[in-house]
Write a protein that binds this DNA or RNA. Sequence first.
DNA 1: ATTAGCACTCTCAACCTTTAAATGCTAACA
DNA 2: TGTTAGCATTTAAAGGTTGAGAGTGCTAAT
Lengths: 348, 348
Amino acid sequence: MEDVENLSERKKNILLNSVADYIQSAVPITSKMVKEQHMVDISTATLRNELNALEAMGYLKQLHTSSGRVPTSKAYRLYVNWLMKNLTFKGEELDVLKRGFNLKAQNLDSLIDKVAKTISKVTDLPTVVVMNDLKKLIIEEIKIIPLIDYSALMLIQTSGGIINNTLEIDENTSEEDCIESARVLHQYFAGKTIEYMIDNIEEVANKYSERISVFKKVFESIIDILKETKSPVHTGGTKLLNKPEYSDVEKAQQILSLMEDDDVIRSVVKTEDDNLTFKIGKENDIETLQDCAVITAPLTIGDETIASVGVIGPQRIDYELVAGAMQYVVNELKNIKQLKGDVDEEKK
Amino acid sequence: MEDVENLSERKKNILLNSVADYIQSAVPITSKMVKEQHMVDISTATLRNELNALEAMGYLKQLHTSSGRVPTSKAYRLYVNWLMKNLTFKGEELDVLKRGFNLKAQNLDSLIDKVAKTISKVTDLPTVVVMNDLKKLIIEEIKIIPLIDYSALMLIQTSGGIINNTLEIDENTSEEDCIESARVLHQYFAGKTIEYMIDNIEEVANKYSERISVFKKVFESIIDILKETKSPVHTGGTKLLNKPEYSDVEKAQQILSLMEDDDVIRSVVKTEDDNLTFKIGKENDIETLQDCAVITAPLTIGDETIASVGVIGPQRIDYELVAGAMQYVVNELKNIKQLKGDVDEEKK
DNA sequence: ATTAGCACTCTCAACCTTTAAATGCTAACA
DNA sequence: TGTTAGCATTTAAAGGTTGAGAGTGCTAAT
């Protein structure tokens, strides 16, 4: 389908350079510009012929007869494919990232938050993270710590990170009750999935509710918490307003309100692919996004893919920067568990 | 200063009604409109005289000779003062709030987050929460719970809520070490302020570092965490774009980037007052906000004022709704500790 | 295959015109 | 003295016109 071979070396040159220029400047490509910046030896007339041909092939289009040309989705796709073959991280921009993004082990929520904020900052684009279903995660450790006000903190350490939630408990629940509850939970569910725990916790609760009055209450709270789906986390929406594409408030708002619709954005950002995925223009299913680009990647810790991250912008997006930043963050996350794996090995 | 007495009953009527209308519609006030909606028996000519007089007194101004009039800051101030005397919560809107805002005890971060999101949702305006300095909070309880990956969770239960942070610790730190560390910290610092803890922890660390090798490391992490200042939390920035006042992207961006400047927004939102504070138009110190309204309130849990919350919008803001929503949330927060106080009493 | 030259197209900004809505003012009225 | 009808006046907003400028496509020559 992407028969790059059809393109003469010169056409390819013109096209890739022009797309790169346009991504930086947002100024339509003209024969004069191409000559001055890339092909001084060739006349504008010749370049006009080339541009004309590229337009006929569907890589460029004019906004109106007497204007320069802008890249089509097809051109961006070509550019991205080429870029992915020749990707080198951009030094300076990623320096900022490397300095700002040190991951200490932390709970999932703040980890996700940090990922979104960092990518948004570096790319200067809105960024969304949607959590995968937690149900498939494997339970490693469970702790329940009583706090004030009829509440307790429950920590579930899983194969995909630590889940950290507040339980409502009865007023006369002692610290020992909490420890005992955690012990029982651990006994039954360590090594099992969260899904398994949801399905079977009731049974366990019934078994123990007579011996320890608080059990049932605790277990009910746990079910409530685990069943609830996390809202997607989004940051940097206002960054869209900087882009000339969205100087019209209406347009910006369409995208922004789409980002706030949990179900829609979840379907947009969630990715099955193992690598970066680029959806450019028409490649997007959602109507509103058909003149946008969406770049998504899975967030994997160890063996568990816990979430997907997505960056949304105009098609004229700095793919190189975005891909570099996302790649970097995704790798850092993988390394966290790498470390943990090593430690486990040593212990054995 | 606010000599409402100068105003005849009729003028006051016209003005308050007109401001209320304008807040809802954003359409400049005309003699015709006033007649039709509030004073059918009086001719437009008479109303023109009245409006003219109100303008001379500085309550209204025309955008140009042949346009209707819009309220000045002075008029909004009068309106707000009147409103605060006659405030009744708006039933329907606050119903949404009451349904959505149930506060379980939780850590400070998520509490703050919930407050911001809720107020922003109900008022349909950007909302910011800035944390007060935590240094004055009194420590009640300290727990350290070891997790994976050289890290532990530290919970400090204070007079103002639970502070919840991840520590980096040495690889060979046992659970007993953590418990012992927490015990020592508790022994020295329970009942003291966090500030006191920061000033004296080093000494304690030195004393114990020989007996328990991990102490120093733990204590260093704690200092780092406590010294760091929390960034303000902001939500709903994009809601500004709905307002006709900000159909111009430039204007919206001015406000939005101001909201993202931590130092500036902190000075804007932080309030010493015990109640709701309204800063209308020129009453704001910051240049950019001089055609905005900023409504702020302290967030108090028990005796501790832990943060300030602020709502930012055009001067033409639904003060009634905003005041109602903020008042409600502020009270709910107070009640949390009320509850806790009761429990403490019972225990004695 | 390339290029110079030129006619052609279209946007953009500036300027003008018209329309409609609101006002201020004057003079009459209760 | 307060109220009102009537009318001239003001102005923004919308629509139309024009000229300049930038870019293209096409033709004919190299």
